[in-house]
Write a protein that binds this DNA or RNA. Structure first.
Lengths: 179, 179
DNA sequence: CAAGATAGGTCAGCATTATTGACTTAACGG
DNA sequence: CCGTTAAGTCAATAATGCTGACCTATCTTG
């Protein structure tokens, strides 16, 4: 495979057709790029944790639950449902497994005993931390590389992309249920 | 529901337990927040396009394919596989439907006739544009709100989160196949 | 207290998106 | 001609999501 010719599954620019109409304006190109940025950054950020999860027979859905329970001990089931934006049924499967496997504990609310307040067990905390570490390595590298001002900008854009409730949540000024 | 008492599915801070160990250090808290930022921004960014897709009986996977084919007319099947990081089988289902429904056209490579160069039909372009518009509204609002410097920072951090091939791709210095 | 609302759980069934492994066809390339 | 590559396909399976119906326990309110 020493030929200069593209090695087959490589992308070669449009073969005959005109070069596919140049971007209409600068900001369109910028927004096209943002789509790519979000896709690739999310893909690779989640991927590092997926590798850990795979060993344990867990999936991304389990990670999300562990993450939000870990950050909000005493979270209720319905608050978690609002955050994840999935149905009760979908969460049940994930949560039941986490409880069965001893990662998550449930305690009745002491003011309202209908509530099942969710917390991580020590085992759950250990796993969550392990998952976090894998993403932290990637993140700290990225933050260092980009610099503190860039991090501020990153935060500002990400905040502006999410809905109002999620914004309040990440600002620490809202309840988890709003997210 | 006029009582000050948390309205049931609202998240109330840990009921009795100590306030859940304060963050170990500043940068840990920062990275915890970054996990949230990525989750919520991605959730809400994809959500606006999902609403359009739903009407047409398509899913997120179809959008991704449309997006990358649209941005890279003449893309090969295997380049697309590398970008999406899914298997041939998973892509086949998505791609076959897009071709059946007349969104995507395939043409044999003219240098290497094994290749099926993928392009969007006019119908495909129209749909891709419609999907793009929905995300563009959200994005332009976010970019405006955050300001041009923040956008630069956003880009820098996102670039640093993705792997080398994807970085080259978004910089326009790599082939699609590397992403 | 009785009635209605809420939190949570559960059952059955289904759709989408992903996986693996094996195999085929066509075309390229030495 | 032969080995490799691009692409397509078949069969089976898994993870994650959905709907709708229904149940229980508990809280809230008239």
């Amino acid at each position: 495979m020493l030929k200069p010719k593209p090695g087959a599954d490589r992308f070669v620019p449009p073969p005959k057709l005109p070069p596919a109409a140049p971007p209409l304006d600068l900001s369109e190109a910028q927004m096209r790029q943002a789509q790519d940025l979000l896709f690739f950054a999310y893909r690779d950020f989640t991927n590092v944790a997926d590798k850990v999860l795979e060993e344990l027979g867990l999936g991304r859905a389990h990670h999300r639950a562990l993450h939000f329970i870990g950050r909000n001990p005493g979270l209720t089931v319905s608050a978690l449902l609002h955050i994840l934006r999935i149905t009760k049924q979908s969460l049940a499967r994930v949560l039941n497994l986490l409880v069965e496997d001893g990662y998550v504990a449930q305690a009745p609310g002491y003011e309202d005993r209908r509530l099942r307040l969710l917390t991580l067990t020590d085992k759950g905390k250990a796993l969550e931390r392990r998952l976090f570490e894998s993403q932290r390595n990637l993140l700290s590298q990225a933050y260092l590389q980009a610099g503190p001002e860039a991090v501020e900008g990153f935060r500002a854009v990400m905040r502006a992309l999410m809905d109002q409730g999620a914004r309040a949540y990440v600002d620490g000024t809202g309840s988890a249920e709003d997210a």
